[in-house]
Amino acid sequence: MSDSAPRDPVSAATTEPRFVRVALVTVALTFLTLFLFVPLAAVFYEALRKGIGVYLAAIADPYALAAIRLTLLSVVFAVPLNMAFGVTAAWAIAKFEFRGKSVLITLIDLPFAVSPVIAGMIYVLLFGAQGWLGPWLGAHDIKIIFAVPGIVLATVFVTVPFIARELIPLMQAQGTDEEEAALVLGADGWLTFWRITLPNIRWGLLYGVVLCTARAMGEFGAVSVVSGHIRGLTNTLPLHVEILYNEYQFAAAFACASLLTFLALVMLAFKALIERRALRQRRSALAMETSS
């Protein structure tokens, strides 16, 4: 193992003896192996254990395909909605001063502090058969709970903060100078946004979208509460995995799980790729802020 310290010219005074370094790396890697790498390998092992035929059959199953469609549908709703929210919230918070701003920033984070189960529950209390609006919805034959709208709503709830959280500090660091210059030069608000602000925040925005997508795809607790688990109708892919697992169809459950895991890995790769660029964008914004 080549474990020389990164700040190499510095003498032994600011790094640890070799055995300490080796020991710490070993402890860290053992911990990560037990809790991360082994589970990751196990998903694919269990999925392919009964052969590729069983694997493909599990994924081509009509119920699995319906679940994939529903999962994609909730992503297609949750990501653009929360993108619109993230951009508008960040614009108002980063470009203007107003009372209650810090309260608003705190409230945006609220969905992170609420158990997903509670997130699902509040919609049941609102729209469920015995909920506040239940009788009215029933009279008008609108179904939200145990139907697709509820699943979309629950997914939107748990992913509200992701994009806003990325954009607010980025846009705060970038300040308003460039936008003001554009306006002075005669651009209108929209043109300024498209030509100045959006290019400046594009990596941060993309980063938030990746995080939001990953969470929307995988949400379980909130969706589980509002779904009703109707196969082919209100089952998302994570819920489908649960049903298969509880029916002891382990190979099929892990086959669908491996699909989600693969998507998670794609998201991580994307994230690692964007992260460096987003970081550079934020650093350059901060550098400009301190120099001006």
Binding site: L29, P39, L40, A257, A264, L268
Partner: peptide
């Protein structure tokens, strides 16, 4: 290893649970 540390954020919790 650095990139994989974020796996629990990206992996659906149900997948983590059954695994």
């Amino acid at each position: 290893v650095d990139a994989l540390v974020d796996l629990p954020f990206a992996l659906p919790t149900a997948v983590a649970g059954i695994t």
